[in-house]
C-alpha cells in the first residue's frame, strides 16, 4: 500500500509539473512596459516553488515507500537530528525565498501601482456599470465635463452622467464602448463605478484593478504592441458578470489620431 501511495504521488506530481513546464496553458503574450517584470517574477516563483513542490511530494513518497517496508526486525527510526534541522531548514530556505520574492516582486508591483503616470499620458475616464465598460476622452477642448450621477441615462447614451446643457466642457466629450489607445504612449485611466464593484483586467497588460463605487481609482499603463485585446470584469458584479467586457484596441499613433477625429465628428 505504501509503494502504491508513493507511485501515485510520483505520477501525479510528475504529470502536474510536466504540464507547467511545457507551458501547455500559459499566460498570453505581454504587451505592456510593466509586464515583463511580472512575467519574470512569475517564472522565478514558478521555479522556486516548483522545486519545493517536487521535493515535498517526492520526499513524502520516498518516506512512505520506506515506511512500508516489511523487513522483519526493522525498528522505527527517528529523523536524523530530530526536528531541529527541519525547522532550521524551513526557516532559512523559505525565509530566503520570501525575502528574494518580496524584494524583487515589490519592484514589479511598484512599477505598476506606485509610480506616477508620465506627464504626457493620454487621459481616459472609465465608467463601469452593470454590465459594460464605457470610455471617455476629453474631446477637442482637452477638458472633461463634470459628472452628475442624477443625469445618468442609459436610454439616451449618457452613461457618465454628463450635463451638456449647463456644462460646455461636457459637450465635446467622446464616449465609446472600446478603449482605443495609441501604441507606446502612456495611458492614464481614472476608474469610476456607476453602481457596484467591478474590475478592469487585461491579461496582456498584466494589470488588474477594481472599480470602487464612491472612489476614483487611478491606473496607468503603456501598450507596446498594436492589436485588439479583451478587457474583462473580474469582480463579481451581478447576473451579467460573465459577459461584462470591452476591447482594448492599440493602434499606431497616426491611425489613432484619425480614429479620434472621426469620433469627435459624430
Amino acid at each position: 500500500m505504501g509503494k502504491l501511495f508513493a507511485a501515485v504521488v510520483f505520477v501525479i506530481t510528475l504529470i502536474s509539473v510536466a504540464i507547467f513546464v511545457m507551458h501547455t496553458w500559459w499566460l498570453p503574450i505581454d504587451i505592456s512596459t510593466t509586464g515583463p517584470a511580472v512575467d519574470r517574477q512569475m517564472n522565478d516563483t514558478m521555479i522556486g516553488t516548483g522545486i519545493l513542490f517536487l521535493a515535498g511530494q517526492l520526499v513524502l513518497g520516498v518516506f512512505v515507500w520506506g515506511s512500508s517496508s516489511r523487513k522483519s526486525g526493522r525498528k522505527i527510526r527517528i529523523f536524523p537530528g530530530g526536528a531541529t534541522p527541519l525547522v532550521t531548514a524551513a526557516i532559512i530556505l523559505v525565509g530566503l525565498e520570501i525575502l528574494t520574492l518580496t524584494f524583487v516582486g515589490s519592484k514589479a508591483w511598484g512599477a505598476i501601482y506606485l509610480t506616477p503616470p508620465a506627464a504626457n499620458s493620454l487621459r481616459v475616464d472609465v465608467q463601469a456599470e452593470q454590465f459594460a465598460f464605457y470610455f471617455r476622452y476629453p474631446g477637442p477642448d482637452g477638458q472633461f465635463g463634470g459628472l452628475h450621477p442624477d443625469k445618468i441615462d442609459d436610454g439616451s447614451g449618457n452613461y457618465f452622467g454628463l450635463d451638456p446643457a449647463n456644462d460646455i466642457a461636457a459637450r465635446d466629450d467622446i464616449v465609446v464602448g472600446s478603449l482605443v489607445v495609441p501604441v507606446n504612449r502612456p495611458v492614464e485611466l481614472t476608474l469610476h463605478s456607476k453602481d457596484v464593484g467591478h474590475s478592469f483586467y487585461v491579461r496582456e497588460l498584466r494589470v488588474q484593478q477594481d472599480f470602487v463605487p464612491g472612489l476614483d481609482i487611478p491606473l496607468h499603463f503603456t501598450a507596446t504592441q498594436t492589436g485588439k485585446f479583451e478587457i474583462v470584469c473580474t469582480q463579481l458584479c451581478g447576473l451579467g458578470h460573465y459577459n461584462m467586457k470591452a476591447y482594448l484596441e492599440v493602434m499606431p499613433e497616426d491611425q489613432w489620431e484619425q480614429w479620434l477625429k472621426s469620433q469627435a465628428g459624430q
Binding site: 452593470q130 454590465f131 459594460a132 442609459d154 436610454g155 451581478g238 447576473l239
Partner: peptide, 12 residues
C-alpha cells in the same frame, strides 16, 4: 414602464 437590459445597457 421603462424596460432595460443590464447585460447590454444601451437596450432601453
Amino acid at each position: 414602464i421603462p424596460v432595460k437590459c443590464n447585460i447590454h445597457p444601451w437596450m432601453h
